[in-house]
Design a protein around this nucleic acid. Structure first.
Lengths: 184, 184
DNA sequence: GTCTATATAAGGATAGAC
DNA sequence: GTCTATCCTTATATAGAC
Protein backbone atom coordinates (compact mmCIF):
# COMPACT_ATOMS: atom_id res chain seq x y z
CA UNK A 1 0.00 0.00 0.00
CA UNK A 2 1.55 3.30 -1.05
CA UNK A 3 1.65 6.31 1.20
CA UNK A 4 -1.49 8.32 0.59
CA UNK A 5 0.43 11.55 0.71
CA UNK A 6 3.25 10.92 -1.66
CA UNK A 7 3.64 13.49 -4.40
CA UNK A 8 1.92 11.49 -7.08
CA UNK A 9 -1.26 11.12 -5.05
CA UNK A 10 -1.25 14.75 -4.08
CA UNK A 11 -0.96 15.80 -7.72
CA UNK A 12 -4.03 13.71 -8.45
CA UNK A 13 -5.96 15.19 -5.54
CA UNK A 14 -5.16 18.79 -6.38
CA UNK A 15 -5.67 18.34 -10.09
CA UNK A 16 -9.05 16.71 -9.64
CA UNK A 17 -10.21 19.49 -7.38
CA UNK A 18 -9.10 22.21 -9.78
CA UNK A 19 -10.46 20.43 -12.85
CA UNK A 20 -13.87 20.35 -11.19
CA UNK A 21 -13.82 23.96 -10.04
CA UNK A 22 -12.20 25.72 -12.99
CA UNK A 23 -12.38 23.22 -15.80
CA UNK A 24 -9.71 21.01 -17.32
CA UNK A 25 -8.38 23.46 -19.89
CA UNK A 26 -8.30 26.47 -17.60
CA UNK A 27 -6.26 24.58 -15.02
CA UNK A 28 -2.57 24.84 -15.86
CA UNK A 29 0.23 22.62 -14.69
CA UNK A 30 1.85 25.69 -13.22
CA UNK A 31 -1.17 26.18 -10.98
CA UNK A 32 -1.19 22.58 -9.84
CA UNK A 33 2.53 22.73 -9.14
CA UNK A 34 2.17 25.95 -7.17
CA UNK A 35 -0.52 24.53 -4.91
CA UNK A 36 1.63 21.51 -4.30
CA UNK A 37 4.67 23.64 -3.59
CA UNK A 38 6.84 22.30 -6.38
CA UNK A 39 7.72 23.41 -9.88
CA UNK A 40 6.06 22.45 -13.12
CA UNK A 41 8.99 20.31 -14.13
CA UNK A 42 8.50 18.11 -11.10
CA UNK A 43 5.07 17.11 -12.36
CA UNK A 44 6.57 15.75 -15.52
CA UNK A 45 8.52 13.23 -13.53
CA UNK A 46 5.23 11.74 -12.30
CA UNK A 47 3.08 12.22 -15.39
CA UNK A 48 4.36 12.35 -18.99
CA UNK A 49 1.53 14.66 -20.09
CA UNK A 50 -1.42 16.54 -18.67
CA UNK A 51 -3.76 13.99 -20.19
CA UNK A 52 -2.06 11.25 -18.23
CA UNK A 53 -3.22 12.83 -15.00
CA UNK A 54 -6.79 12.36 -16.20
CA UNK A 55 -6.09 8.80 -17.27
CA UNK A 56 -4.70 7.97 -13.87
CA UNK A 57 -7.71 9.54 -12.17
CA UNK A 58 -10.10 7.45 -14.14
CA UNK A 59 -8.43 4.08 -13.64
CA UNK A 60 -9.90 3.33 -10.24
CA UNK A 61 -13.37 4.45 -11.18
CA UNK A 62 -13.39 2.40 -14.39
CA UNK A 63 -12.22 -0.65 -12.47
CA UNK A 64 -14.95 -0.14 -9.91
CA UNK A 65 -17.63 0.17 -12.57
CA UNK A 66 -16.19 -2.82 -14.37
CA UNK A 67 -16.43 -4.91 -11.22
CA UNK A 68 -20.03 -3.86 -10.70
CA UNK A 69 -20.82 -4.71 -14.32
CA UNK A 70 -19.19 -8.12 -13.98
CA UNK A 71 -21.16 -8.85 -10.85
CA UNK A 72 -24.42 -7.79 -12.50
CA UNK A 73 -23.69 -9.99 -15.50
CA UNK A 74 -23.11 -12.99 -13.28
CA UNK A 75 -26.49 -12.62 -11.66
CA UNK A 76 -29.88 -13.67 -13.06
CA UNK A 77 -31.50 -10.85 -15.03
CA UNK A 78 -34.18 -10.19 -12.48
CA UNK A 79 -35.73 -7.07 -11.06
CA UNK A 80 -34.04 -7.76 -7.77
CA UNK A 81 -30.64 -7.82 -9.46
CA UNK A 82 -31.33 -4.44 -11.03
CA UNK A 83 -32.38 -3.04 -7.69
CA UNK A 84 -29.23 -4.40 -6.15
CA UNK A 85 -27.09 -2.76 -8.85
CA UNK A 86 -28.69 0.58 -8.08
CA UNK A 87 -28.05 0.14 -4.38
CA UNK A 88 -24.41 -0.72 -4.96
CA UNK A 89 -23.97 2.14 -7.40
CA UNK A 90 -25.38 4.58 -4.85
CA UNK A 91 -23.20 3.08 -2.15
CA UNK A 92 -20.06 3.62 -4.23
CA UNK A 93 -20.92 7.26 -4.83
CA UNK A 94 -20.79 7.92 -1.09
CA UNK A 95 -17.06 7.73 -1.50
CA UNK A 96 -15.73 11.24 -2.05
CA UNK A 97 -13.19 10.25 -4.66
CA UNK A 98 -15.67 8.33 -6.85
CA UNK A 99 -18.10 11.19 -6.51
CA UNK A 100 -15.45 13.72 -7.53
CA UNK A 101 -14.37 11.71 -10.56
CA UNK A 102 -17.95 11.52 -11.81
CA UNK A 103 -18.37 15.24 -11.24
CA UNK A 104 -15.22 15.84 -13.22
CA UNK A 105 -16.69 13.93 -16.13
CA UNK A 106 -20.05 15.64 -15.94
CA UNK A 107 -18.59 19.11 -15.94
CA UNK A 108 -15.87 18.59 -18.53
CA UNK A 109 -17.61 16.48 -21.14
CA UNK A 110 -16.68 18.62 -24.10
CA UNK A 111 -13.14 19.30 -22.89
CA UNK A 112 -12.20 15.63 -22.62
CA UNK A 113 -14.39 14.30 -25.40
CA UNK A 114 -11.44 13.36 -27.59
CA UNK A 115 -9.47 11.73 -24.81
CA UNK A 116 -9.09 8.02 -24.34
CA UNK A 117 -10.29 8.21 -20.75
CA UNK A 118 -13.64 9.56 -21.90
CA UNK A 119 -14.17 6.79 -24.41
CA UNK A 120 -13.36 4.14 -21.84
CA UNK A 121 -15.66 5.70 -19.26
CA UNK A 122 -18.48 5.92 -21.79
CA UNK A 123 -18.08 2.30 -22.80
CA UNK A 124 -18.01 1.14 -19.23
CA UNK A 125 -21.12 3.09 -18.32
CA UNK A 126 -22.91 1.76 -21.39
CA UNK A 127 -22.04 -1.79 -20.38
CA UNK A 128 -23.38 -1.19 -16.92
CA UNK A 129 -26.57 0.37 -18.28
CA UNK A 130 -27.06 -2.66 -20.47
CA UNK A 131 -27.22 -4.89 -17.43
CA UNK A 132 -30.17 -2.96 -16.02
CA UNK A 133 -32.09 -2.34 -19.22
CA UNK A 134 -33.82 -4.77 -21.54
CA UNK A 135 -33.84 -3.88 -25.27
CA UNK A 136 -37.22 -5.57 -25.51
CA UNK A 137 -38.75 -3.29 -22.92
CA UNK A 138 -40.81 -0.29 -23.92
CA UNK A 139 -38.81 2.89 -24.49
CA UNK A 140 -40.40 4.42 -21.42
CA UNK A 141 -39.09 1.58 -19.26
CA UNK A 142 -35.61 1.87 -20.74
CA UNK A 143 -35.59 5.59 -20.09
CA UNK A 144 -36.71 5.07 -16.50
CA UNK A 145 -33.86 2.67 -15.88
CA UNK A 146 -31.39 5.29 -17.01
CA UNK A 147 -33.10 7.95 -14.96
CA UNK A 148 -32.70 5.73 -11.92
CA UNK A 149 -28.95 6.21 -12.21
CA UNK A 150 -29.42 9.91 -12.89
CA UNK A 151 -31.49 10.17 -9.74
CA UNK A 152 -28.51 9.04 -7.69
CA UNK A 153 -26.33 11.68 -9.29
CA UNK A 154 -28.98 14.39 -9.32
CA UNK A 155 -29.46 14.33 -5.59
CA UNK A 156 -26.02 15.89 -5.36
CA UNK A 157 -27.11 19.20 -6.85
CA UNK A 158 -30.89 19.27 -6.92
CA UNK A 159 -31.18 19.84 -3.19
CA UNK A 160 -29.05 22.94 -2.91
CA UNK A 161 -30.26 25.42 -0.32
CA UNK A 162 -32.56 22.87 1.26
CA UNK A 163 -32.40 22.08 4.92
CA UNK A 164 -32.39 18.33 4.42
CA UNK A 165 -29.32 16.48 5.65
CA UNK A 166 -27.10 14.67 3.14
CA UNK A 167 -28.36 11.39 4.54
CA UNK A 168 -31.97 12.35 3.94
CA UNK A 169 -31.08 13.45 0.42
CA UNK A 170 -29.33 10.19 -0.35
CA UNK A 171 -32.21 8.22 1.04
CA UNK A 172 -34.73 10.14 -1.06
CA UNK A 173 -32.60 9.63 -4.16
CA UNK A 174 -32.34 5.91 -3.56
CA UNK A 175 -36.08 5.63 -3.00
CA UNK A 176 -36.84 7.39 -6.27
CA UNK A 177 -34.22 5.37 -8.13
CA UNK A 178 -35.62 2.07 -6.92
CA UNK A 179 -39.07 3.22 -7.86
CA UNK A 180 -37.87 4.02 -11.36
CA UNK A 181 -36.10 0.72 -11.83
CA UNK A 182 -39.40 -0.98 -11.03
CA UNK A 183 -40.08 -4.58 -10.20
CA UNK A 184 -41.24 -4.15 -6.64
CA UNK B 1 -35.71 40.95 -39.00
CA UNK B 2 -32.01 40.63 -39.73
CA UNK B 3 -30.63 38.45 -42.47
CA UNK B 4 -30.05 35.01 -41.03
CA UNK B 5 -26.76 34.70 -42.85
CA UNK B 6 -25.02 37.89 -41.96
CA UNK B 7 -21.58 37.47 -40.46
CA UNK B 8 -22.62 37.92 -36.88
CA UNK B 9 -25.14 35.09 -37.05
CA UNK B 10 -22.71 32.82 -38.81
CA UNK B 11 -20.10 33.42 -36.12
CA UNK B 12 -22.68 32.34 -33.54
CA UNK B 13 -23.62 29.24 -35.51
CA UNK B 14 -20.06 28.08 -36.08
CA UNK B 15 -18.93 28.89 -32.56
CA UNK B 16 -21.82 27.03 -30.98
CA UNK B 17 -21.14 23.98 -33.07
CA UNK B 18 -17.44 23.96 -32.24
CA UNK B 19 -18.00 24.69 -28.54
CA UNK B 20 -20.22 21.61 -28.34
CA UNK B 21 -17.87 19.33 -30.27
CA UNK B 22 -14.46 20.39 -28.96
CA UNK B 23 -15.21 22.40 -25.85
CA UNK B 24 -15.16 26.14 -25.25
CA UNK B 25 -11.51 26.48 -24.31
CA UNK B 26 -10.17 24.24 -27.06
CA UNK B 27 -11.99 26.25 -29.70
CA UNK B 28 -9.87 29.20 -30.74
CA UNK B 29 -11.00 32.36 -32.44
CA UNK B 30 -8.60 31.52 -35.23
CA UNK B 31 -10.49 28.29 -35.87
CA UNK B 32 -13.86 30.01 -35.91
CA UNK B 33 -12.54 32.67 -38.24
CA UNK B 34 -11.04 30.09 -40.58
CA UNK B 35 -14.29 28.18 -40.91
CA UNK B 36 -16.07 31.40 -41.65
CA UNK B 37 -13.46 32.44 -44.19
CA UNK B 38 -12.36 35.61 -42.45
CA UNK B 39 -9.52 36.60 -40.14
CA UNK B 40 -9.48 36.65 -36.38
CA UNK B 41 -9.53 40.43 -36.33
CA UNK B 42 -12.85 40.47 -38.15
CA UNK B 43 -14.48 38.65 -35.27
CA UNK B 44 -13.53 41.44 -32.92
CA UNK B 45 -15.66 43.84 -34.88
CA UNK B 46 -18.73 41.75 -34.04
CA UNK B 47 -17.81 40.59 -30.53
CA UNK B 48 -15.55 42.49 -28.12
CA UNK B 49 -14.35 39.27 -26.45
CA UNK B 50 -14.70 35.53 -26.79
CA UNK B 51 -16.97 35.48 -23.75
CA UNK B 52 -19.35 37.83 -25.52
CA UNK B 53 -20.05 35.19 -28.13
CA UNK B 54 -21.32 32.95 -25.34
CA UNK B 55 -23.35 35.77 -23.85
CA UNK B 56 -25.02 36.42 -27.16
CA UNK B 57 -25.79 32.74 -27.61
CA UNK B 58 -27.49 32.56 -24.30
CA UNK B 59 -29.69 35.62 -24.61
CA UNK B 60 -32.46 34.00 -26.61
CA UNK B 61 -32.55 30.89 -24.48
CA UNK B 62 -32.67 32.86 -21.23
CA UNK B 63 -35.48 34.99 -22.59
CA UNK B 64 -37.40 31.89 -23.62
CA UNK B 65 -36.99 30.30 -20.19
CA UNK B 66 -37.91 33.58 -18.57
CA UNK B 67 -41.14 33.75 -20.56
CA UNK B 68 -42.01 30.19 -19.58
CA UNK B 69 -41.31 31.00 -15.94
CA UNK B 70 -43.48 34.11 -16.10
CA UNK B 71 -46.32 32.15 -17.63
CA UNK B 72 -46.03 29.43 -15.00
CA UNK B 73 -46.06 32.03 -12.23
CA UNK B 74 -49.22 33.59 -13.58
CA UNK B 75 -51.07 30.28 -13.46
CA UNK B 76 -52.62 28.59 -10.42
CA UNK B 77 -50.14 26.26 -8.72
CA UNK B 78 -51.90 23.11 -9.80
CA UNK B 79 -50.73 19.77 -11.09
CA UNK B 80 -52.13 20.63 -14.49
CA UNK B 81 -50.01 23.77 -14.64
CA UNK B 82 -46.90 21.75 -13.87
CA UNK B 83 -47.78 19.27 -16.56
CA UNK B 84 -48.28 22.09 -18.99
CA UNK B 85 -44.87 23.56 -18.14
CA UNK B 86 -43.24 20.24 -18.91
CA UNK B 87 -45.06 20.02 -22.22
CA UNK B 88 -43.99 23.51 -23.21
CA UNK B 89 -40.43 22.88 -22.11
CA UNK B 90 -40.28 19.74 -24.23
CA UNK B 91 -41.82 21.58 -27.15
CA UNK B 92 -39.16 24.28 -26.99
CA UNK B 93 -36.36 21.74 -27.04
CA UNK B 94 -37.50 20.49 -30.43
CA UNK B 95 -35.94 23.62 -31.80
CA UNK B 96 -32.39 22.85 -32.87
CA UNK B 97 -30.94 26.10 -31.60
CA UNK B 98 -32.43 25.79 -28.10
CA UNK B 99 -31.32 22.19 -27.98
CA UNK B 100 -27.78 23.12 -29.01
CA UNK B 101 -27.52 25.88 -26.43
CA UNK B 102 -28.54 23.51 -23.66
CA UNK B 103 -26.07 20.94 -24.91
CA UNK B 104 -23.38 23.59 -24.85
CA UNK B 105 -24.14 24.28 -21.21
CA UNK B 106 -24.25 20.62 -20.24
CA UNK B 107 -20.92 19.83 -21.81
CA UNK B 108 -19.02 22.94 -20.75
CA UNK B 109 -20.19 23.44 -17.19
CA UNK B 110 -16.75 23.74 -15.65
CA UNK B 111 -15.33 25.82 -18.50
CA UNK B 112 -17.96 28.55 -18.22
CA UNK B 113 -18.61 28.30 -14.51
CA UNK B 114 -17.16 31.73 -13.78
CA UNK B 115 -18.92 33.47 -16.64
CA UNK B 116 -21.90 35.70 -16.25
CA UNK B 117 -23.90 33.71 -18.79
CA UNK B 118 -23.65 30.63 -16.60
CA UNK B 119 -24.89 32.43 -13.50
CA UNK B 120 -27.84 33.87 -15.36
CA UNK B 121 -28.74 30.51 -16.88
CA UNK B 122 -28.52 28.83 -13.48
CA UNK B 123 -30.74 31.43 -11.88
CA UNK B 124 -33.29 31.21 -14.64
CA UNK B 125 -33.44 27.43 -14.45
CA UNK B 126 -33.78 27.59 -10.68
CA UNK B 127 -36.67 29.99 -11.01
CA UNK B 128 -38.37 27.70 -13.46
CA UNK B 129 -37.80 24.67 -11.23
CA UNK B 130 -39.35 26.56 -8.36
CA UNK B 131 -42.60 26.90 -10.27
CA UNK B 132 -42.93 23.13 -10.58
CA UNK B 133 -41.73 22.12 -7.13
CA UNK B 134 -43.24 22.73 -3.74
CA UNK B 135 -40.80 23.18 -0.80
CA UNK B 136 -43.40 21.53 1.42
CA UNK B 137 -43.44 18.38 -0.64
CA UNK B 138 -41.46 15.34 0.37
CA UNK B 139 -37.88 15.27 -0.91
CA UNK B 140 -38.77 12.37 -3.16
CA UNK B 141 -41.47 14.43 -4.86
CA UNK B 142 -39.14 17.38 -5.31
CA UNK B 143 -36.52 15.13 -6.84
CA UNK B 144 -39.06 13.61 -9.21
CA UNK B 145 -40.09 17.04 -10.44
CA UNK B 146 -36.49 17.80 -11.31
CA UNK B 147 -36.06 14.43 -12.96
CA UNK B 148 -39.06 15.20 -15.13
CA UNK B 149 -37.03 17.95 -16.77
CA UNK B 150 -33.98 15.69 -16.93
CA UNK B 151 -36.09 13.09 -18.69
CA UNK B 152 -36.72 15.53 -21.52
CA UNK B 153 -33.01 16.17 -21.89
CA UNK B 154 -31.96 12.58 -21.32
CA UNK B 155 -33.95 11.28 -24.22
CA UNK B 156 -31.44 13.03 -26.45
CA UNK B 157 -28.57 10.71 -25.53
CA UNK B 158 -30.03 7.71 -23.73
CA UNK B 159 -31.44 6.21 -26.89
CA UNK B 160 -28.28 6.09 -28.94
CA UNK B 161 -28.01 3.05 -31.20
CA UNK B 162 -31.67 2.23 -30.78
CA UNK B 163 -33.95 1.84 -33.74
CA UNK B 164 -36.66 4.08 -32.34
CA UNK B 165 -37.43 7.21 -34.33
CA UNK B 166 -36.77 10.63 -32.79
CA UNK B 167 -40.52 11.13 -32.54
CA UNK B 168 -40.95 7.91 -30.58
CA UNK B 169 -38.08 8.92 -28.32
CA UNK B 170 -39.58 12.33 -27.65
CA UNK B 171 -42.96 10.80 -26.95
CA UNK B 172 -41.48 8.30 -24.51
CA UNK B 173 -39.57 11.07 -22.76
CA UNK B 174 -42.67 13.20 -22.41
CA UNK B 175 -44.66 10.27 -21.07
CA UNK B 176 -42.07 9.54 -18.40
CA UNK B 177 -41.71 13.22 -17.54
CA UNK B 178 -45.45 13.66 -17.04
CA UNK B 179 -45.51 10.54 -14.93
CA UNK B 180 -42.75 11.96 -12.74
CA UNK B 181 -44.41 15.32 -12.30
CA UNK B 182 -47.45 13.49 -11.01
CA UNK B 183 -50.95 14.78 -10.46
CA UNK B 184 -52.73 12.63 -12.99
C1' DG C 1 12.81 13.44 -7.33
C1' DT C 2 13.13 18.14 -7.87
C1' DC C 3 15.34 22.20 -9.66
C1' DT C 4 16.58 26.26 -13.28
C1' DA C 5 16.32 27.62 -17.70
C1' DT C 6 14.53 27.50 -22.09
C1' DA C 7 12.32 25.90 -26.41
C1' DT C 8 8.29 26.26 -29.02
C1' DA C 9 3.73 27.20 -29.98
C1' DA C 10 -0.68 29.23 -29.49
C1' DG C 11 -3.88 31.92 -27.32
C1' DG C 12 -6.73 36.48 -26.84
C1' DA C 13 -6.61 41.03 -27.99
C1' DT C 14 -5.32 45.73 -30.28
C1' DA C 15 -3.64 49.43 -33.80
C1' DG C 16 -4.23 51.31 -37.81
C1' DA C 17 -4.68 50.87 -43.04
C1' DC C 18 -8.16 50.18 -46.54
C1' DG D 1 -16.62 45.52 -42.13
C1' DT D 2 -12.46 43.29 -42.98
C1' DC D 3 -7.53 43.21 -43.48
C1' DT D 4 -2.21 42.90 -42.01
C1' DA D 5 0.82 43.08 -38.52
C1' DT D 6 1.98 42.80 -34.00
C1' DC D 7 1.81 42.82 -28.75
C1' DC D 8 1.66 40.39 -24.73
C1' DT D 9 0.73 36.51 -22.03
C1' DT D 10 0.44 31.87 -21.11
C1' DA D 11 0.63 27.17 -22.14
C1' DT D 12 2.80 22.41 -22.60
C1' DA D 13 6.88 20.30 -22.68
C1' DT D 14 12.10 19.34 -22.59
C1' DA D 15 17.29 19.51 -21.36
C1' DG D 16 20.37 18.98 -18.18
C1' DA D 17 22.26 20.20 -13.39
C1' DC D 18 21.93 18.77 -8.57
Amino acid sequence: MSDRHDTRSRIQEIALELFIEQGYDKTSLREIAERLGVTKAALYYHFPTKDDIVNSLVEDRIAQLHALTEWASSQPRTAETRRQVIRMYAEELHDTKAHQVMQFFERNQAAIKQMDAMKRMRNQLTELFDTITDPNDALTEQLKSSLAVFAIHASLFVFRNRDATPEQQREAALTVALELIGGD
